[in-house]
């Protein structure tokens, strides 16, 4: 579903953002991508949307390759991706319902099909009763739910979430993550970039890819190749204090 092979990304101004990043996410997985700010999480998200091309290596997303994709094919890829951001990116002059409908309208979904689909996804995220509210009338958690509903409206194969809980209080954040779990349980691949380590530790059942300074420094799947085998690396849920936590404590300088 998603495959990065020896991906490098360099920016003219800020230098290397990703260095030799490779990982493979299969259909139906839910994966956390963690790391400090500037570790390269958002760069990966942009590469997956093909908003940018890698400097070297290859990014493959649901059948499209960064090496061969043409500009006019990018919208087709985007329709297979649902994207959620930390800052929600809702249109303030439109109601929750209109924000979701907008995503369908601009991708050419028939008018008759739109309202039905909007109702369905708003119900799925638990916001059917706030369909007529404007973003400013909603709480942070509710706004993010609208954003998730919009991401789901086009029935994507992959949900990409870039720090979706970054602007939310803990309760709202848990609510959003529970929503992702439900969506994942229905078969959708979910890739969530986050630096909320508590959330990651609380869900050891999901794969974790940790980035530091543009490199993958930990991948729980690589660390535990067979699901039945005991993890070679400490699981992220390991009780604090056992000294084997990988998440967030890796320091490439060895400090």
């Amino acid at each position: 579903m998603i495959k990065l092979t020896s991906v490098y990304k360099e920016y003219a101004r800020s230098g290397a953002a990703l260095k030799d990043v490779s990982f493979h996410v299969q259909k139906g997985e839910l994966v956390f991508v963690t790391g400090h700010s500037g570790a390269g999480k958002s760069t990966i998200m942009r590469l997956l949307q093909m908003a940018e091309a890698p400097s070297a290596g290859e990014v493959r997303v649901s059948g499209f390759s960064s090496k061969t994709i043409r500009r006019r094919e990018i919208p087709l890829l985007r329709r297979k991706l649902g994207v959620v951001f930390q800052d929600f990116r809702l249109l303030r002059d439109r109601t929750a319902e209109q924000n979701v409908a907008f995503a369908l309208e601009v991708t050419g979904v028939k008018r008759s099909a739109i309202s039905q689909r909007v109702n369905r996804v708003l119900t799925q995220v638990g916001l059917s009763h706030k369909a007529q509210s404007f973003p400013d009338e909603l709480s942070g958690g509710e706004r993010q739910r609208v954003a998730v509903a919009r991401a789901l409206a086009n029935e994507p194969l992959v949900l990409l979430a870039d720090e979706p809980t970054g602007n939310l209080d803990e309760w709202a954040a848990r609510g959003i993550f529970d929503l992702f779990r439900e969506i994942n349980a229905l078969g959708m691949t979910v890739l969530m970039a986050t630096h909320d380590l508590d959330l990651v530790r609380a869900h050891p059942e999901y794969r974790v890819i940790e980035l530091a300074q543009g490199q993958v420094v930990y991948d729980s799947k690589a660390a535990a190749p067979a699901p039945s085998a005991p993890p070679a690396h400490a699981p992220v849920s390991a009780a604090a204090g056992d000294g084997q936590l990988a998440i967030g404590i890796y320091d490439p300088r060895g400090a």
Binding site: P75, R78, R79, L81, R89, V106, T107
Partner: peptide
């Protein structure tokens, strides 16, 4: 511009934008 960036995000074609 916000609308346009969302349109692109959800997969509106250049022609549509």
């Amino acid at each position: 511009r916000e609308e346009i960036s969302i349109m692109r995000l959800v997969g509106a074609t250049d022609g549509f934008v």
